[in-house]
């Protein structure tokens, strides 16, 4: 090809228009799965953020609870109080729709915080391992390898168990959510570290990094200014998939009774509560939280799957 100037003469476009025209945005617009999944995620996230405004009842305010409303089936009026609940009520007369909104809030808060924390730890350690190499790399990656041998959920349980042993009983419920976040994050950082290290090792040997070193740029500017932006796309994919995993992990831990306490129920806690009533016919107490959880996890997974294809990084 000849070295012509044609390409540089095209009319300048705004960044937004450029993005809209990019292959990435194009493949998004042409993937019904991605569009629907992101719509679901947006709706659920908005519902969680604005839960206090949307929810018809505050399920944690004992003043609004009427035990007489217990076990009201969805959509039908209660036999005693004649009140109607969209998704029914649980044993204590709490509106299931409202508890789901609040539960979603906790599930998303824990999931997003855990992934962010894992991402920060993993990205920094991964970059350091790749850039400096030597014994630092060996140390970080050995720890990662050993931890990877232990399934994330088990690591999270152990951390939770240890934290429970350390914290005084009166603070346990209060701390539970934060312990949960830290437990999930510490069990998940390895994924980020490995992917970032792998991608950064490739980038590190590219000539633009040599060029920056030649100018005399220091290690940290090179790592964060040059390498980091170039390894973000696999990180984004991992973060999305990790979010789904973190939400599921939170639900699992809460279901097992080692996560969010009944005073601050997440979707997993709600399912744990609902399980007890499934066999006696009050299916809605379990069914609707379970559907919400599945919708959330599935949409995030679908988005992650689509992102992986769209960004097409070499991922394990």
């Amino acid at each position: 090809m000849t070295d012509t100037m044609e390409t540089t003469k095209s009319a300048p476009k705004s960044r937004l228009a450029k993005f809209w025209d990019s292959d990435f945005a194009w493949s998004f617009r042409h993937s019904p799965v991605a569009v629907i999944a992101s719509l679901v995620v947006v709706v659920l996230v908005l519902a969680a953020i604005f839960a206090p405004l949307i929810a018809p009842y505050n399920p944690f305010d004992p003043a609004t609870l009427n035990l007489m409303n217990g076990f009201t089936p969805p959509g039908t009026p209660n036999a005693f109080t004649q009140e109607t609940f969209l998704l029914g009520t649980d044993d204590q007369g709490r509106d299931v729709f409202s508890t789901i909104l609040y539960g979603l809030r906790i599930s998303l808060f824990v999931g997003v915080s855990a992934v962010l924390l894992a991402l920060i730890i993993g990205v920094i350690l991964g970059l350091i391992a790749a850039y400096f190499g030597g014994w630092i790399e060996t140390l970080i990656m050995r720890i990662a390898d050993v931890q990877l041998t232990f399934p994330a959920i088990l690591v999270a349980m152990l951390i939770f168990g240890i934290a429970k042993g350390i914290t005084p009983p009166e603070y346990r419920d209060e701390m539970a959510i934060y312990v949960l976040i830290i437990a999930i994050a510490l069990s998940d950082w390895v994924q980020f570290a490995r992917v970032v290290r792998g991608a950064a090792l490739v980038e590190k040997n590219k000539e633009y990094v040599q060029a920056a070193r030649l100018i005399g740029r220091g290690s940290f500017p090179i790592m964060f200014r040059h390498i980091l932006p170039n390894v973000l796309s696999p990180v984004l994919v991992i973060a999305t998939i990790s979010l789904a995993l973190a939400i599921i992990a939170e639900a699992t831990l809460s279901f097992l009774g080692v996560g969010a306490p009944p005073t601050q129920p997440s979707l997993g806690t709600l399912i744990r509560i609902g399980q007890g009533f499934l066999f006696s016919g009050e299916w809605w107490i379990l069914f609707f939280p379970a559907c919400t959880l599945l919708a959330l996890a599935l949409s995030v997974n679908l988005l992650g799957d689509w992102l992986r294809d769209a960004l097409n990084p070499k991922l394990r």
């Binding site: 399980q275 599945l294 996890a297 679908l302």
Partner: peptide
Amino acid sequence: SLIGVSLPTFLIGI
């Protein structure tokens, strides 16, 4: 299979 990955084990059991 994507639904399978999104369904927590305990829900499958239930």
